[in-house]
């Protein structure tokens, strides 16, 4: 992999040059939190942000998206609006890049989702390294570092950003800046290692995921699920803010006085009562406890069977977005806890 460095004071120059590759989007502040947004000026970008309210998922799988327009006689005509828009996401954290890599696998496979894939192709990602706060457990989820899925990835090494070039497009961006980037030398490599070491020590939250699938199986009947079911509001907040929740609903609507209309998909959540409801009226997950169990089970156990790792990346968003303080880290800790058999 090509590794270069960019002097920090040249970052805004770099930003102005890469705009030729697409519309520049970066985290900006919104009432003390951060959101990915189109930049109107570079100075609005907040690269030291903790986490955005919504993950970059919103660019690849928008909350609402028209899939088809229907016209009698024409049938279903795919909607291509917005798919070819070139965007550069500047300042994506490793966990969020990791999450996009997970979504890549879901939306690929035997049946490729052409909407997702078109956006993925046209949206460039410039990653940036970060330091953990009290909600981050990406390291436990092995998502504190990514080796692919980005075009460029920047590590803050003091006076420089060390840049990993991930794709040909990333290389084109580097080249377009003329000679802004410089080769790295041994001192900067040491800077990187020092930062990596410091980052590792900065994690305050740790979850053990080894053999977690088996423990989920063993605790399938645990009373934890009933307690969580009592608490959960089924508000869907955790699913909306999750960088790897991809469930969607599809709805058709018609125009007034016509059979013409459009087919839209929109974000959905397995916590909603209708999620597993079938036409005959049977609901396979009618209780809130069965639904929240399914959510944890699918992320931490089901996904492991399917893709070899949990789909959780440890970004901490669901923890801060839950109005009733349901905390995945605490749930896993409790599932792992050795209870005194006698007191059961």
């Amino acid at each position: 992999m090509k590794i270069l460095k960019l002097p920090k004071e040249k970052l805004d120059l770099f930003a102005s040059v890469v705009q030729q590759f697409g519309e520049l989007h970066a985290p900006v502040e919104q009432d003390g939190r951060y959101v990915f947004k189109r930049l109107t000026r570079w100075s609005d970008a907040r690269l030291e942000y903790d986490r955005t309210i919504l993950p970059p998922k919103k660019y690849f799988l928008p909350p609402r998206e028209a899939l088809f327009r229907y016209r009698p006689g024409e049938g279903f005509v795919p909607n291509t609006d917005g798919l070819d828009q070139r965007i550069i996401l500047f300042g994506v954290h490793a966990c969020d890049v990791y999450a996009i890599n997970i979504l890549d696998r879901v939306f690929a496979g035997k049946y490729k989702d052409p909407y997702y894939q078109a956006r993925r192709k046209n949206i460039a990602i410039i990653g940036i390294d970060c330091l953990p706060d009290k909600q981050c457990f990406c390291r436990s989820m092995r998502a504190d570092f990514v080796d692919h899925g980005f075009d460029l990835f920047f590590y803050d090494t003091g006076d420089y950003y060390q840049a990993l070039v991930g794709t040909a497009l990333g290389d084109d961006m580097v080249l377009a800046t003329g000679n802004l980037f410089e080769p790295v030398d041994a001192a900067e490599i040491d800077d990187y290692k020092r930062r990596s070491w410091n980052k590792r020590r900065a994690f305050q939250v740790d979850v053990e995921i080894r053999d977690l699938p088996e423990i989920f199986e063993m605790e399938y009947q645990s009373e934890i699920w009933d307690e969580l079911g009592e608490k959960c509001l089924s508000c869907g907040s955790c699913s909306m803010v999750c960088p790897t929740c991809y469930c969607y609903d599809v709805a058709d609507d018609v125009e007034l006085g016509s059979r013409a209309g459009k087919r839209t998909r929109l974000w959905d959540s397995c916590l909603f009562a209708s999620h597993a409801l079938v036409g005959s009226g049977e609901n396979f997950r009618g209780s809130r406890s069965s639904r929240i169990k399914y959510r944890f089970y699918h992320k931490q156990r089901g996904f492991v069977a399917e893709y070899g790792r949990p789909s959780c990346v440890g970004c901490g968003r669901c923890v801060s977005a839950c109005p009733v303080h349901i905390d995945v880290v605490q749930v896993i800790d409790r599932l792992r806890r050795v209870e005194d058999v006698a007191s059961r």
């Binding site: 049946y111 469930c247 969607y248 959905d268 397995c270 999620h275 597993a276 399914y294 089901g302």
Partner: peptide, 8 residues
């Protein structure tokens, strides 16, 4: 086709 998540 294994995307929408409902039939899990």
């Amino acid at each position: 086709i294994g995307k929408c998540g409902h039939c899990g």
